[in-house]
Design a protein around this nucleic acid. Structure first.
Length: 594
RNA sequence: GGGGCCGUAGCUCAAUUGGUUAGAGUACCGGACUGUCGAUCCGGGGGUUGAGGGUUCAAGUCCCUUCGGCCUCGCCA
């Protein structure tokens, strides 16, 4: 046995035991000719080991050659350090190991950066040495948290009659949705598999097969541009249930969310998560994934703007736009004029807003370069509607309705964070329901599925499918936490005729539908039960539970924004004979185009 | 595809208006130290300023091109 204990578990109660420990040299301190201290580290903690010339000059000499990150084994006796020598910063600080034998398993090159203390090096370097970065305690804890979450999820579903079923990774490319990652077939020349964007169709077919409660912790792939919270491959907790309605799924996931948050974070949430309609959150927060840890709702003052003397507001309202604003309570002195006129204006500009109007509330009136365009009554009405008090900063965007939503929602998130309007440790989950089924695609002059093409229309709106498809609500739902989409799902269509009708609206003709989705449509023709499901983004959940805002910190081997793996060098060129097997030729490559 | 920030010693950063031999902390190497624990003290080595080109008497600094990382809009059923 190479070790009898770990570096995190020894206490005074183990005094006088002989133990073997293995680990990495975290730090070393030579103290004169007689003494060497080494802090030995493994996944479980750190333990101080002490070498003395008295005990063995030979071991002491070798100990003096130890350097950071060398991997060693020590054998020795657990000693209480003495009342004045306890180190309260270490869990094992009461004791140390008096070493009687040392084995050096492996020497380390000088580490690429320092694991603790000081600032983190740039992420490029960390990713190149990911195996090393992963030794840092924060990343170790994140990976541990990820494991805990996966296990809690499995336990929850396993005790409720769900079966974990794997679905293919090599599948078929389907139209719409994200860009597929493709895998060429060697056997079928010119044909390609697609990696799954999600196991959607397979899980629906499993419902048709009678596996009425399914889940899977499934890897998914989408070849789209990345963000701080998006990786090209990511993990979904995929769930599907048969003979259920929307609320059955929501209740089941409420239970999952409250139980896993309790289990991995020890936080008690209300048993039933609040449910809002899409129309409601879009109006009040301008976003379908509002951060509900703070208020600052969007308020419409378009009617006041329309009758004021402020030309910008008037013109926007007359042109069918909206004037909406938010109230940054007590922030009138926190943003300089330069910040407001430049930084915040540019910030909302990223979302298409042409300007940002602001007014400060002081002495019951509005203070602003544009205040003169508003009568006393109009000012009073704005203050009242915005719930304004002296010291408040009111910010307005006048633009196309969608632009006011996007710009103010982003501004609200930014101000909420900058003004510290919430406790970053809290979790505020909510369901958003009744999404639109379809959204009009102006470029292609047709409807797109808002969620995906297998989503059941809300029964109350079925008539509208013919008359006004854009108004049809879907029987779909998103779970939102702290401003992130944390899960998404819907009741599925189980009638092949309804499914065909939706394909028609999406401008997918019968022939194309048969060719691309035929295997689903055919399944629906052989006795398909009502079913519904949801998928939770595991990576985002771990990120949120870790209090992080970077998804790479919760993935063991993540990819960069350009989807490369700096550790392995993927993606990379392949040998010509591999391409020849696949009958693939690469066009337009320069010699130096690596 | 668009916008923004960044790249100087192993690492984190500094370097006046374009001007002396590109510095500091830390890491690394050597030495001192009998209870250290972010050890301390003394000494030392270490630079293709991401790469390429240009302007200039002179470029880390200015210009062009390019590579890479991060944030973001579009995109992500």
């Amino acid at each position: 046995m190479l070790r009898t204990k770990t570096c995190g578990e020894l206490r005074r109660a183990h005094e006088d035991e002989t133990v073997k420990l293995c680990g990495w040299v975290n730090s070393y301190r030579e103290q004169g000719k007689e003494l060497v201290f080494v802090d030995l580290r493994d996944r479980y903690g750190k333990t101080q080991v002490v070498f003395r010339t008295d005990d063995s000059a030979e071991i002491d000499a070798r100990a003096r050659k130890l350097r950071r990150e060398d991997v060693i084994q020590v054998e020795g006796v657990v000693r209480y350090r003495g009342d004045d020598l306890v180190n309260p910063k270490l869990e094992t600080g009461e004791i140390e190991i008096r070493v009687s034998a040392l084995t050096v398993f492996s020497k380390s090159k000088t580490p690429p950066f320092e694991l603790e203390g000081g600032e983190l090096p740039n992420e490029e370097l960390r990713l190149k040495h990911r195996f090393f970065d992963l030794r840092r305690s924060t990343l170790q804890e994140n990976i541990r948290l990820r494991h805990d979450l996966s296990q809690a999820v499995r336990e929850y579903f396993n005790t409720r009659d769900f079966l974990e079923i794997e679905t293919p990774i090599l599948g078929r490319s389907t139209p719409e949705g994200a860009r597929d990652y493709l895998v060429p077939s060697r056997v079928h020349h010119g044909a390609f598999y697609a990696l799954p964007q999600s196991p959607q169709i397979y899980k629906q077919l499993l419902m048709v097969s009678g596996f009425d409660r399914y889940y899977q912790i499934a890897r998914c792939f989408r070849d789209e541009d990345l963000r701080a919270d998006r990786q090209p491959e990511f993990t979904q907790i995929d769930v599907e249930m048969t003979f259920v309605e929307r609320d059955d799924v929501l209740d089941m996931i409420d239970g999952l969310v409250t139980s896993v948050i309790k289990k991995v974070k020890g936080i008690e949430l209300e048993g039933s998560l609040p449910r809002y309609t899409y129309a409601d959150v879009m109006e009040r927060f301008g976003s379908d994934k509002p951060d509900m840890r703070f208020g600052m709702e969007l308020i419409d003052i378009g009617d006041v703007g329309a009758v004021s003397d402020f030309g910008v507001f008037k013109a926007v309202v007359e042109g069918g736009g909206r004037v909406r604003g938010i109230n940054a309570k007590g922030a009138s002195e926190k943003y300089s004029r330069r910040l407001l006129d430049k930084d915040l204006k540019d910030f909302v500009g990223e979302y298409g807003a042409k300007g940002l109007a602001y007014m400060k509330v002081a002495g019951g009136k509005l203070e602003s370069t544009i205040a003169k365009f508003f009568s006393e009554d109009q000012q009073a009405e704005i203050i009242k509607r915005m719930d304004g008090e002296d010291g408040d900063l009111l910010l307005f965007v006048a633009d196309k309705p969608a632009v006011t939503s996007a710009a103010l929602a982003a501004l609200r998130n930014r101000l909420g964070k900058e003004l510290e309007l919430y406790d970053p440790e809290t979790f505020c989950p909510l369901w958003v329901v009744d999404f639109p089924l379809l959204t009009w695609n102006e470029d292609e002059k047709r409807f797109d599925a808002e969620h995906h093409p297998f989503c059941e229309p809300n029964k109350e709106d079925v008539e509208l499918l013919e008359s006004d498809p854009g108004k049809v609500r879907a029987d779909s739902y998103d779970l939102v936490i702290n401003g992130y989409e944390a899960a998404s799902g819907s009741v599925r269509i189980h009638d092949s005729q309804v499914q065909q009708k939706i394909f028609d609206l999406l401008n997918i003709n019968e022939e194309e539908a048969e060719s691309r989705f035929g295997f689903l449509l055919e399944g629906l023709r052989y006795g398909a039960p009502p079913h519904a499901g949801v998928a939770l983004g595991l990576d985002r959940w771990v990120m949120l539970l870790a209090g992080d805002d970077n998804i790479r910190d919760v993935v063991a081997f993540p990819k960069t924004q350009r989807a490369s793996d700096l550790l392995s060098g993927a993606p990379a060129r392949v040998d010509d004979h591999q391409l020849k097997d696949l009958r693939i030729e690469i066009e337009g490559l320069d010699e130096d185009d690596e």
